[in-house]
């Protein structure tokens, strides 16, 4: 299982990489939406994308619109991870095809909780 981490901050990518690696993902990274699209176009199709909103070259919202325009990529789970936290912006991202939305700042548990909601990680519940 691959997670593509899309954020212009290396520090943030590194934080997210540690979290999803612990949850069993291998990772790919991109510093903006265009670099992320380049990964997809080259056939590196992840299970999950973690997407920042504000980035140079191509922002995360535009990236989502692009992914949703290509039916071959419809199985990819898209999760925004961004400091954009206006109510209207969240609605807009969901309408464009984001499955989930995590607002920065977050704790590692928050990412795990959301991926569990999405059925991508199974939480070990004592029987």
């Amino acid at each position: 299982m691959y997670a593509l981490i899309i954020d212009d901050s290396r520090a943030m990518r590194s934080i997210l990489r540690r979290i999803v690696t612990d949850l069993g993902f291998e990772t790919l990274e991109a510093a903006d939406g265009q670099e992320a699209l380049d990964h997809l176009n080259a056939g590196r199709i992840p299970t999950l994308c973690l997407i920042d909103w504000n980035m140079p070259v191509m922002d995360g919202y535009t990236f989502i619109t692009n992914v949703r325009a290509n039916s071959e990529w419809r199985d990819i789970t898209l999760m925004m991870v961004t400091t954009e936290s206006e109510h209207g912006q969240i609605v807009k991202a969901l309408a464009a095809g984001a499955h989930e939305y995590v607002i920065k700042p977050f704790t590692p548990d928050a990412i795990a909780d959301k991926l569990e909601l999405l059925g991508l990680v199974a939480k070990a519940v004592p029987a």
Partner: peptide, 9 residues
């Protein structure tokens, strides 16, 4: 931070 914990968007 609390909102992020398990609440679907």
């Amino acid at each position: 931070v609390e909102m992020n914990r398990g609440l679907p968007a």
